[in-house]
């Protein structure tokens, strides 16, 4: 019964994402999409994948994967966010 409730919540969230994309919110649309998707993922992980009942080790595995993904994004972003800010003497100016 709990599973059915989770499934219903997931469908409501799906409707919310799909609906929100028709409301002009600029950059906040993307934010809403990602926030809702993360919430959906959390529901699936906690209930369907039983993460709630798992021990510390399994939770750690899940968290480490996300942290490492964040490292890939974050440290690459040190480059992309400042690429145009100033130029090394040896690199060509655009």
């Amino acid at each position: 019964m709990r599973y059915v409730a989770v499934w219903a919540a997931l469908l409501v969230l799906l409707a919310a994402t799909a609906g929100s994309s028709y409301i002009p919110m600029g950059g906040w649309n993307a934010f809403a999409n990602m926030a809702i998707s993360s919430l959906k993922a959390l529901l699936v992980a906690l209930f369907f994948m039983q993460l709630r009942h798992e021990g510390a080790l399994v939770r750690l595995a899940a968290v480490v994967a996300l942290v490492w993904l964040a490292l890939l994004f974050g440290l690459s972003w040190t480059d992309y966010s400042t690429r145009g800010a100033s130029h090394a003497p040896w690199s060509a100016r655009p």
Binding site: A18, N33, M34, A45
Partner: peptide, 19 residues
Amino acid sequence: HFVDIVWVFLYPMFYLLER
């Protein structure tokens, strides 16, 4: 479930841009 989660992110990334 993991494959499902991946799709949950792919869906807004491709289908929902400035609808």
